[in-house]
């Protein structure tokens, strides 16, 4: 059953909805977080092996490395998601600090009311 894939894509669509239709900067930023979390979930799901174990060699597995390799899940998406999470934290931090400034300047978090730039 591809339940994981479907749920991950639902999260992506939900994030997209927040990002495009919400009128509050904080909610938009949350939408961004949900969107990327959906992608992370999808990536992790891609590396799942039915009935697999974590990609850590432990205990008696040291004696049976080929057996370990035949049962562990994919380590690559986990590494990618690790990298990607940090990147998204960075974006969120920057976005929130900009939101603080926007609020100081405009006294609102509604992006459609920030209309200095036109043309």
């Amino acid at each position: 059953m591809d339940f994981n894939y479907v749920i991950a894509m639902l999260l992506v669509a939900l994030g997209l909805y927040c990002l495009l239709l919400k009128r509050n900067l904080i909610k938009i930023i949350i939408g961004l977080a949900v969107l990327t979390d959906g992608i992370h979930l999808f990536l992790i799901s891609l590396g799942y092996r039915a009935g697999g174990t974590a990609a850590i060699v432990s205990g008696e597995m040291f004696l049976d490395l080929p057996g370990f390799a035949a049962h562990a899940v994919d380590p690559i998406p986990q590494a990618l998601v690790l990298t990607s999470i940090v990147i998204n934290i960075c974006i969120l931090a920057l976005a929130l600090s900009l939101a603080i400034y926007a609020y100081r300047h405009y006294k609102t978090l509604n992006p459609s009311k920030m209309r200095r730039l036109r043309g």
Binding site: M1, D2, F3, V6, S45, R49, G51, D74
Partner: peptide
């Protein structure tokens, strides 16, 4: 994702 990929859990 539900039609064009191999089913969930089919790594590698």
């Amino acid at each position: 994702v539900s039609t064009d990929l191999l089913p969930f859990g089919s790594f590698p």
